[in-house]
Design a protein around this nucleic acid. Structure first.
Lengths: 233, 233
DNA sequence: CCTACCGATCGGTAGG
DNA sequence: CCTACCGATCGGTAGG
């Protein structure tokens, strides 16, 4: 059972906390633990922090954003943030985690056809559209912010992206079973298509002459070509 | 004429400097200017700084690497670095610039066939092999370090990568003229293939079961499929 | 290139 | 005794 903390006592990292998510891997001392039983999701302060942090990280990167600037943007003090999150890096992780989920939900919703080739088109179109939309208004994409995470947390983020890649693998596999797709390796092919889409933002801004729709259409065709049978080898 | 600087006096940013390359875009004050007339290329100190900085940036990222750690690694003091480079960001830029050139030279050397399809295979194989090799030993790839550059310098880096993409465009165009390739847009297709190859590192480490050769072969086939005629649509 | 430092700001913590 | 913070400042370190 969790004991109430005496005034001034430090909570250990293993203590039950009202915030969810990752426990800091650093040996940092924690702010006093509030009573357990509440969740962040009932508390919109945490959501407001994530909103502010997301905007600032996207604008200036992780290291280019101070804790106090996040605090100012939410109308709190810097110290108050540490009641909601154990460290700055946990804020980044939570921001990315939320974005991965929202991004996946959007793509999943767009994929509604039952025909594999059409499903693949819907997947690529939604994915590329999402990435381009982000690239247009952001200095730092979520993809590049991941590199600010320490090794361990980066691995955890990769796992969170699994549904994304699993959806694509499912499309490819069902297409192969239906005889419309043909490819040598599901995993590599899925990763290839996925990274191709994810990193459109690295070049899109530099070529403003192209419309969003045009790039989506071109990428969709390229992806379909990569897996369609008979292969043109 | 350049006046000798009194002790403690700061050189203006417009003073003649013996180092080459980009002038800092920040309004930072500079360390005292040495006598003009020497070049960095005759000075292997600058090369040693770049070697040390490259290793440290790759290990800990840009913000995770202090100027003094670069200095220590080269056997200099932190202040001494500022005789060779105007700022920390200029060191990163020089590191990336050198790598882009070396990386391009390697790919260019690998592309020797005259047959377009084989040329594309050689290009993709060399590119992917290079990226995987880097991914195996590095925490931060050069591609992710680019995101630590401010907007202006990031644009300059993109320009430095032009030969890379131009080589690929040339391959695609000659293949189209020879009637073996067919695609809708040279620029987008080249970018799609290029980013697909460049960002192998984002997933390769997590899937150690695959060999370097296997991934190269699979990616080569995927790229050829993307542009081969007749398209399997 | 070194020694000797600066202005500022960093992430995080204190008691209340 | 709780949740939700505040005003002030900590020890270190950054780039220059």
């Amino acid at each position: 059972m969790q004991q109430p903390l005496a005034p001034g006592e430090k909570a250990s990292a293993s203590a039950t906390r009202h915030w969810e998510g990752h426990s800091s891997v650093y040996g940092l001392t924690m702010t006093p633990t509030p009573a357990p039983g509440r969740t962040v999701l009932q508390d919109d302060s945490a959501e407001r922090i994530l909103d502010a942090a997301a905007a600032l990280f996207i604008e200036g990167g992780y290291e280019g954003t101070s804790v106090s600037s996040i605090a100012k943007s939410t109308g709190m003090t810097a110290a108050a943030l540490y009641w909601h999150f154990p460290s700055k890096i946990d804020i980044l992780f939570a921001v990315l985690e939320r974005d991965v989920r929202e991004g996946y939900a959007e793509v999943e919703k767009a994929v509604r056809s039952q025909e594999p080739r059409q499903r693949l088109r819907e997947y690529v179109d939604a994915f590329v559209r999402q990435q381009i939309r982000e690239a247009e208004t952001r200095n730092f994409s979520y993809s590049t912010l991941i590199s600010s995470l320490p090794q361990e947390l980066r691995q955890e983020m990769l796992k969170l992206g699994a549904p994304y890649i699993d959806l694509l693998r499912g499309i490819l596999t069902s297409g192969r079973e239906a005889g419309v797709f043909e490819f040598a390796d599901v995993r590599v092919t899925a990763f290839a298509i996925s990274t191709m889409c994810e990193y459109v933002f690295t070049w899109f801004r530099a070529n403003r002459s192209l419309s969003q729709d045009a790039v989506c259409a071109l990428y969709t065709d390229l992806a379909v070509r990569m897996v369609s049978t008979p292969p043109a080898l």
